[in-house]
């Protein structure tokens, strides 16, 4: 029995088939595992290693470089408060303090009910909407303390449908229809592209 559900195992095949070298599918597959489980379990790492022909240590090596991959459960909602320069100038320090008090945890911590994790993160590219934050990578702009409280309350009561559980990024995936696919371009095959031949 593998880690991936049968639907996700199919999706994994589809993703791997797009790349000229299967190792390139490593990060996409880690995302898929995180989408399925909310974080990347060691069984998932093991299975992904086999799929892409790497050792589990290589998978862990790659995974640990990237902040979004969580080897332990961060809870249902990961709240990332931006403390980049533009947000800093517009009150992100105060927002972070407010968030720590409201949730009763320091930045880097998780609430005991498994609902929230809080982090101070680097620039999230919402600089003109400062101070900004993301919940599971969905943006909230110009967040005053009152808005923060509202967001937390509606998340806790399950009312914010636009924020999916942690691990889910795009809710629509790319699908390349077989009959329309040009196919991966292998680095081993040296051919002049046909449209360059006159």
């Amino acid at each position: 029995m593998g880690y991936f559900t049968s639907d996700n195992a199919k999706l994994a095949e589809e993703i791997m088939a797009r790349y000229p070298k299967v190792r390139s599918a490593l990060i996409p597959l880690l995302h898929l595992a995180q989408e399925q489980g909310g974080y990347v379990t060691s069984e998932a790492m093991q299975e992904i290693a086999e799929l892409v022909g790497a050792t589990p240590a290589e998978v862990l090596g790659t995974l640990s470089f990237y902040e979004m991959f969580k080897p332990t459960d961060p809870g249902r909602y990961q709240i990332n408060i931006c403390h980049g320069i533009s947000c800093f100038l517009c009150g992100s320090t105060e927002l972070l303090h407010h968030a720590e008090e409201r949730l009763g945890i320091p930045a880097g911590g998780s609430t005991a009910d498994g609902l929230f994790s809080l982090e101070a993160v680097e620039c999230i590219a919402a600089c003109t909407e400062a101070p900004a934050l993301q919940v599971n990578y969905r943006y909230f702009n110009r967040v005053a303390p009152e808005l923060f409280d509202e967001v937390v309350e509606s998340l806790a009561s399950g009312e914010l449908a636009e924020v999916p559980p942690h691990g889910v990024l795009a809710r629509v995936r790319q699908h390349i229809p077989v009959e329309r696919a040009a196919g991966p371009s292998s680095p081993e095959v040296s051919e002049t592209p046909v449209w360059l031949e006159s």
């Binding site: 797009r18 990060i27 902040e67 979004m68 991959f69 990024l169 371009s185 046909v194």
Partner: peptide
């Protein structure tokens, strides 16, 4: 046309 090319969407992971 003769142009055949796939565009593959790939996500980073925070770095």
């Amino acid at each position: 046309s003769k142009l055949s090319v796939d565009i593959v969407l790939h996500w980073g992971a925070g770095a």
